[in-house]
Structures are given as C-alpha cells and as structure tokens.
C-alpha cells in the first residue's frame, strides 16, 4: 500500500497519472539485476521504476512496516 509520495511535483504528477498514489495497492513483480529497476503492478498497469526514484515512494506492508526498494 502506498502511503506517501516524497517527490518533486513533476514526478508526483507522473506517478499519480500512472496510478501510484497514496492509498493504492502496489505489487512488486521483480527487481532488476545490478540494482536495476523494479517491475511493479498498480491496478491494471505494469511499470518499471528506477530504485532511486522508488526510494521516494513510501510503501507500507500489510503489518505497517516500510518496504525498501
């Protein structure tokens, strides 16, 4: 579950338009080799997101602990 977006407004608009916004469930499908990008699924959309950028998205597990990219 996404809890907050701690990003610049430009990226925030992009992420929200792609479905990553507070309250939304996300699923990590895979992580790329050599700290490569993360493959995510949000709603009906699949995305790749670099870890640097993903670090600014606060995602909480079901038990409330924060997930780190």
């Amino acid at each position: 579950m996404v809890s907050a977006l701690e990003v610049a407004p430009g990226l925030r608009h992009r992420l929200e338009a792609l479905g990553i916004k507070p309250g939304q469930q996300v699923r990590v499908l895979r992580r790329g080799w050599w700290s490569g990008p993360i493959h995510l699924r949000v709603g009906m959309t699949e995305l790749m997101l670099r870890r640097v950028d993903a670090a600014h998205v606060v995602v909480l597990e079901g038990d409330g602990s924060r997930v780190h990219p």
């Binding site: 990003v7 992009r14 792609l18 995305l47 790749m48």
Partner: peptide
C-alpha cells in the same frame, strides 16, 4: 527526468 516506463502487455 526520472525513468518511469510502462511495461505494456
């Protein structure tokens, strides 16, 4: 720009 790309089916 951050890289956020859609991976379409």
């Amino acid at each position: 720009e951050a890289l956020v790309l859609e991976l379409p089916p």
